[in-house]
Simulated assay, not measured.
Amino acid sequence: MALFKSGNPALNEKTFTKSFSYVDAESMTVKGTLNKFGILFLMTMATAGLAWKMVASGVDVTTYMWISVFAALGVAFIIVFKMEWSAYLAPVYALVKGYAVGAISAYYNYAFQKVAPDIITQAVALTFGVVIAMYFLYKFNVIKATPTFKKIIITATLGIAVFYLISIGLHFAGIEIPFLHEGSMFGIIFSLVVVALAAMNLILDFDMIENGASKGAPKFMEWYCAFGLLVTIVWLYLEILRLLSKFASRK
């Protein structure tokens, strides 16, 4: 996240500066990035569907879910430091992360099927709605990715990331942070803030993708940026799902 250029650790201006040291006959384009994002998204949906089907069949996927969560995290770290490998590792990330997302979604669907039977459909619809809305806000300069804006989003995102890592560690120690999952007023406010933060990261991601294309970044950066955008959208979906579950728990 150097130089405070993107809230997504996979996308920042230093990324593109570093990438210019590679020789590539072709340059990155916005269209190429979106095409590759489409491929990664379909792969994510495929393994998410597999996990969902396994849960529906009565298979306990808890262990597989945690393995896929940590595997995705590990692959993501490798991609960040080895951008030129993104064409090979981004699909791996999409597959393992998709399984985790599918398992988590199935869990929420089962847990809230009585009070909120459409919670997954609502989360998906809201996620796409937010992505589209943020794109138009960015495209028409309603929200601009200014240096100050970027610094604020970066700082907040780092704080949330550290907090979540701590909460995962506490979870395995048998300690839960109540407002992360419970539908208290504070818990709902916390989730609203995090959803807004994830949405703001989309502005920075769109900005960096366009900047990378305009600066002639190497072709492999299309895979890298597609991976970064997928990271943000998956995060946004999971936070919206968590928020909806908190509202549902109050019924």
Rank of each mutant, 00 (worst) to 15 (best):
P9G: 00
P9E: 05
A10I: 02
N12G: 02
K14N: 13
T15P: 03
T15C: 08
F16Y: 13
F16N: 00
T17K: 13
T17W: 08
K18L: 10
K18H: 11
K18E: 09
S19V: 08
Y22V: 15
D24W: 14
D24L: 11
A25K: 09
M28Q: 08
T29V: 06
V30L: 09
G32P: 02
G32I: 00
T33W: 06
T33Y: 01
N35E: 09
K36V: 08
F37W: 10
F37D: 08
I39R: 10
L40T: 02
L42W: 02
L42D: 01
M43T: 04
M43C: 09
M43N: 10
M43V: 09
M45V: 15
M45Q: 12
M45R: 07
A46R: 05
L50F: 08
L50V: 14
W52L: 03
K53S: 15
M54C: 04
A56V: 12
A56S: 13
S57R: 00
G58W: 03
V59N: 07
V59S: 06
T62Q: 05
T62H: 01
T63W: 12
T63S: 11
Y64W: 15
M65C: 04
M65W: 01
W66V: 13
W66L: 08
W66D: 02
S68A: 15
S68R: 03
V69Q: 04
F70H: 08
A71D: 09
A71M: 11
A72P: 04
G74Y: 05
V75S: 00
F77G: 06
I79V: 14
V80F: 10
F81D: 07
F81W: 12
M83T: 14
E84Q: 14
E84T: 07
W85F: 08
W85S: 08
Y88S: 06
A90D: 04
A90Q: 04
P91V: 03
P91I: 03
V92L: 14
Y93H: 12
V96C: 07
V96Q: 03
K97S: 15
Y99A: 09
A100C: 05
A100S: 11
G102N: 02
I104N: 07
S105N: 12
S105C: 12
